[in-house]
Design a protein around this nucleic acid. Sequence first.
DNA 1: ATCAATTTTAGAACTATTCTAATGCCACGA
DNA 2: TCGTGGCATTAGAATAGTTCTAAAATTGAT
Lengths: 144, 144
Amino acid sequence: MTPNTHDQLLKKKQVEQMLAEHGIFVTAQRRIIAEALFARNQHITADQLLDLVNKNGTKVSKATIYNSLGLFADKGLVREIHINASKTFYDSNASRHHHFYNVDTGDLIDMKERLVPLFLQSDLPDGTVMETADVVIRVRNQSP
Amino acid sequence: MTPNTHDQLLKKKQVEQMLAEHGIFVTAQRRIIAEALFARNQHITADQLLDLVNKNGTKVSKATIYNSLGLFADKGLVREIHINASKTFYDSNASRHHHFYNVDTGDLIDMKERLVPLFLQSDLPDGTVMETADVVIRVRNQSP
DNA sequence: ATCAATTTTAGAACTATTCTAATGCCACGA
DNA sequence: TCGTGGCATTAGAATAGTTCTAAAATTGAT
Ligand SMILES: [Mn+2]
Ligand SMILES: [Mn+2]
Ligand SMILES: [Zn+2]
Ligand SMILES: [Zn+2]
């Protein structure tokens, strides 16, 4: 019995294809990182991802984690979410959606699409085009 | 001729009143910091404010700048805006409004009120109440 | 095999922010 | 007026997320 099931092989193919389609040269480390990152929709920090990737014997350096996350973000595969000066999440779901952040629990929760604001291109500052719309609604637990 | 004009004295009074109304004990340093910060609507970083405050002979420590900004933010007098891991702005206008951030120029520009999204309390996660709605629309300069 | 270009890496460097612990300040009551 | 308690302020150290450096590894092309 090989360590790779059919499903895992499929997923590996999908991830490679995804990277290639976005003009990202596939390397061993990028494949490992992308497989861990895109295995599910998640909000993860750089060093949570480092731990996750290196949990199973593989060894990827911290620098490569940052390099790859930066590259993936540039190519539009992940979204950076800046909660505060020392908390940056990477969202493996880069499609248009926004978030609730619970300051009491630290939870970052996806917001339903229908709540997303609408912007008109013509309302942007002159000579600019929209890159991303970053929305974080901070909530706290109701007082008891 | 005294160094303080009538207008400046008025402004000083107003600032003290503002702090007191928000339950902030007025101290010499807090008054100096608040006068510089609330002199106009601005988006300013902690050490820009440190420079501004200490420009005219006064001497306030970096720790006090951070302590005061944190206190003012807790009391709802300023808004923190987290652009990225190493760029936090303090907005001296804490009223509800949002921002465009130009990644090419670094400009942070106020957004007109009518573009602000609407949220229904009932759409928040169960058991939570809204604290702030932080919206930053990132734009970049149109390609030439 | 050789080569140039790109990627990875360990660890150092950087830097915004927070922490520490000593000192200062001030109001109040004895 | 003096002493005490409680904050506030401070210099500088510590922290920690991120970026940088420069050397080694990998890659695909010739
Ligand atoms: Mn982390
Ligand atoms: Mn700064
Ligand atoms: Zn999300
Ligand atoms: Zn503003």
